[in-house]
Design a protein around this nucleic acid. Structure first.
Lengths: 116, 116
DNA sequence: ATATCATATACCCATATAGGTATATGTAAA
DNA sequence: TTTACATATACCTATATGGGTATATGATAT
């Protein structure tokens, strides 16, 4: 009995892995919108929008405010900080794969062959 | 005939949506490693490591250098830039959801009706 | 050559999940 | 009330994919 894949959408990293969800966030960061306005902007079926909003809600990337029958959604940008911070640990290597190239050259000197 | 879900892993955003793949990148950014060294560090089965490395390779987040039977993997940090740049458009709103709250208050003052 | 090591890949399975349709829920208007 | 509207959700289907096992590939050593 194979142990199956783990759930994914329940964290911010995976939530923004979905292109449609990124598009929704890009819309909402400009201005808060109702679901219907999002449907018009995206030109996707309403359940599609609602379901992606649900995922975004569950990871706290959007917040909802109900006004009558309208549900206003807005981005909670702070929630993207963990992603930015995770990226940050790689930034110091940007533009220079040089240290790694160095150790690679040492490796092939110590071992012989190469490729790539 | 339901149109099924779209492929996801073939872009950087989704590649880093997988926790194991993030862990691999965190290891490799410290130092390049062979698959076997990664297996030892992660304590996952070797095929698991190899398959995640394949995904990371396909989105160009890691590069491979073969030295004899050893395959050295290293991070290509620059490839994370698109993610960082995408995040960047949200940074100006960090710490203050205030403007959005303002416009929300204005909206409900204007009786919450949506314009169409 | 043969054996061993390092890695990739093929295969299977279970499940998570995106997309679609229909319906439920909840609110406001007539 | 009844109707219309706004959104969420239940349901279904197809597929993408993570995890596991076994095997293939490829390189080195003996």
């Amino acid at each position: 009995m194979p142990m199956a894949r783990a759930s994914t959408t329940n964290d911010v990293f995976n939530a923004i892995g979905e292109p449609k969800r990124r598009a929704i966030l890009e819309q909402l960061v400009v201005q808060q919108m109702t679901v219907g306005e999002l449907v018009d902007a995206m030109e996707w079926p309403q359940p599609t929008v609602s379901k992606h909003l649900k995922v975004l809600r569950e990871v706290n990337l959007v917040a909802e405010t109900r006004v009558g029958r309208f549900h206003y959604y807005r981005v909670k940008p702070d929630e993207l900080r963990p992603v930015q911070e995770w990226i940050h640990q790689f930034e110091k290597y940007w533009g220079g794969a040089l240290e790694q190239l160095d150790s690679y050259l040492i490796d092939i000197q110590n071992n012989g062959e190469k490729s790539d």
